[in-house]
Design a protein around this nucleic acid. Structure first.
Lengths: 212, 212
DNA sequence: GGAGTATATCACCAACCAGTGACATATCGG
DNA sequence: CCGATATGTCACTGGTTGGTGATATACTCC
């Protein structure tokens, strides 16, 4: 993707750099996310990263902005009957979503590894996208009284993230070998059991476990 | 801690290097865990790291071995009446333990950031220590039928880890501002609610929440 | 005391990194 | 057509890293 290939087109070049940045972060991880590596991958000089994005920080901010579009609304479903049912659907969907999104995984790993203005922008973008995604699907439902939904969600979302992240690097977590699909089914069932346990007794149907 | 200070004493030097390694990893994180940094902190030449530990890998392995002693058994308590009660106690204790152990946090963050023989040794040591710790407290109790304890534990432990790690770097997680102590109480209550939800109905007493 | 060895330090290498100034060339407006 | 500007490339600095060979110094045993 050098000049000879694509001509002198700033827009195209900027797009190429942004794409290279996302690819580099997703495939090689945040440790290998540097000006040199991105420029190499984009097939242009690193100077352009400084000129067009003001350095790696600006580039990361651009990645963050382009991140919002990744969280597509879950496919239209019959509206949930209760907050518990909604939570179950959302968190199971989040598991699949997150498991399939290497870029989000890398950012999540980055968030817990280091604090820097660079990762702050990405983390904020990811958090907002996730927040919007959940808010959009909520449909006016509110948690039943006596239920601290934000705390419960934080714990469960965190558990999901940890399972996915650990499965990618260590192949499992806390004794669960998550390289095998059948153990992912166990994880989904456990997640469902936890959710149903706290949001009981308002549970009637929905015994189908998506993704299994 | 150079030669003039401590004399020529291999044992002492090795101990100094190991201590420096743990301190460096705990305080500065795995990104700053390198031969140069450890040697600087230990006040000796990095050559000694190669001579005595065979490089950074061996040093990491040594850190891992010395890691087992960090997980002290929880203070003797009246034996748990049920597996659910035991789980509640253990996971709440794990939260406090992990929150206070910067070294364990750094290793946990490392585990999800990178796969390398270096982190493998540390991760394995941490996993084994955690496993022993839980096994030791189990006291012959077995999960009730229909309960997938390993999967549940993995999810909940993962959630705890994620909350702690995210609170250290981002100051919160998924909308929970974990810089405030009162929100940590919410997290503990949510954890307890989740556990009690799945292990119901075998719950009678134990309404005191440790650490609040 | 003197030889030999263990211990510690120094000096250096090649590779990589972020960042910048100078230069070349294509494109567009007068 | 020619100059100005946008775009792209090159070359270099200063700094850090992991790793290694050579050297200096202290300790030990004969």
């Amino acid at each position: 993707m050098n000049e000879a290939v694509r001509g002198r087109d700033r827009e195209r070049t900027e797009a190429a750099i942004l794409a290279a940045a996302e690819a580099q972060l997703a495939e090689a991880g945040f440790q290998a996310f540097g000006v040199n590596a991105v420029a190499r991958r984009a097939g242009c000089d690193k100077q352009l990263i400084y000129r067009y994005y003001g350095g790696l920080d600006g580039l990361a901010a651009a990645v963050g902005e382009s991140l919002g579009a990744r969280y597509t609304s879950p496919p239209a479903q019959p509206p949930a009957q209760s907050y518990g049912e909604l939570t179950e659907r959302l968190l199971l969907a989040f598991l699949e979503q997150f498991r399939a999104d290497r870029l989000a995984q890398r950012i999540a790993a980055w968030e817990v590894a280091e604090r820097s203005p660079l990762v702050d922008k990405l983390a904020e973008a990811r958090a907002q996208a996730l927040g919007r995604w959940m808010e959009e699907a909520r449909g006016g439902l509110t948690p039943p009284p006596g239920i601290d939904a934000p705390a419960l969600n934080a714990l469960l979302i965190g558990g999901i993230q940890q399972l996915v992240l650990a499965s990618m690097t260590m192949g499992g977590f806390a004794g669960l070998p998550l390289s095998e699909d059948r153990n992912w089914i166990r994880a989904r069932l456990a997640l469902r059991a936890l959710i149903r346990g706290v949001y009981r007794p308002a549970f009637a149907g929905a015994d189908v476990l998506p993704g299994s």
